[in-house]
Simulated scan of single mutants.
Amino acid sequence: MSDEPREHRLKRLHMRSMRRGIKEMDLILSTYAGRHLAGMTDAELDVYDTLLNENDQDLYRWVTGQEAAPTHLADLVGAVSRTFQPEK
């Protein structure tokens, strides 16, 4: 973990969520970030930061259920994919 202030980290992660390689991931990740980043622990932010380093095409296949996500990202990918599911 770096000495980056939490406020700066949240802004950086949110910006990286909005500026992806493909528009679909811009929409998916920026919506997820807007709803959840502020409430995440530092450890959860570390995992999210790792997720943002993944290739957009892979992320899209994982989030849409076309392929299984790697084990270390599976819980977070599941949470991201539930962002657009209607609440019951």
Results as ranks from 00 to 15, higher is better:
E4Y: 03
R16L: 15
E44R: 09
D26V: 13
G34C: 05
V77M: 04
E54R: 10
V77C: 12
N55K: 15
L13I: 11
E44S: 15
N53C: 12
R61T: 15
L52K: 11
D49T: 14
H72W: 02
G34N: 04
S81F: 08
E7H: 05
S17H: 04
M25F: 01
R12K: 13
G65A: 11
K11R: 13
A38G: 11
T50R: 07
Y60V: 09
E44W: 09
S2D: 15
G21A: 07
P86N: 05
D3H: 15
L27C: 12
F84G: 13
T31H: 04
Y60T: 04
P70H: 01
R19I: 03
T50H: 01
L45K: 00
V80D: 02
L10Y: 08
G34H: 01
D75P: 05
R82G: 13
L29R: 03
M40A: 02
Q66K: 09
R35W: 04
F84H: 06
M1R: 03
V63A: 06
R9W: 04
L59D: 03
A74C: 07
D58F: 14
Q66Y: 02
L45A: 03
L29F: 09
M1P: 06
G65K: 07
E44F: 13
D75W: 01
W62F: 13
S2I: 04
N53I: 02
G34W: 03
D3F: 12
M15I: 08
R9K: 09
E4W: 01
V47A: 14
V63Q: 03
R82E: 13
A69I: 01
E67H: 07
H14I: 00
T64G: 00
A38S: 15
Y48N: 00
H8N: 07
R16Q: 15
G21T: 15
K23Y: 13
L29G: 04
T83P: 05
E7W: 09
S30I: 04
Q57C: 04
T83G: 02
I28G: 02
D58Y: 13
E24I: 06
L59T: 07
E87Y: 12
G21D: 06
W62L: 13
P70N: 00
Q57D: 08
H14F: 08
H36Y: 10
G78S: 08
S2F: 10
G78M: 09
W62H: 09
I28M: 12
G78N: 14
H14R: 07
L13A: 14
L27G: 11
Q85D: 14
S81A: 15
E54F: 03
D49Y: 10
Q66C: 02
E54W: 02
R19M: 14
G39K: 01
T71N: 14
D26L: 08
E24L: 05
V80T: 04
Q66M: 05
A43Y: 06
D3Y: 09
T50S: 09
A69Y: 02
K11H: 08
H36E: 11
P5C: 01
L27I: 09
A43R: 08
R61P: 10
G78E: 06
H36C: 07
D75C: 01
R12E: 05
L73Q: 07
D42K: 14
Q85Y: 11
I22Q: 01
R20Q: 07
L29S: 06
M15Q: 10
G39I: 02
L10G: 07
A74R: 10
T31Q: 09
K88R: 11
I28F: 03
V47F: 08
V80H: 03
G34L: 03
I28L: 10
D46M: 11
G34I: 04
H8M: 11
A69S: 03
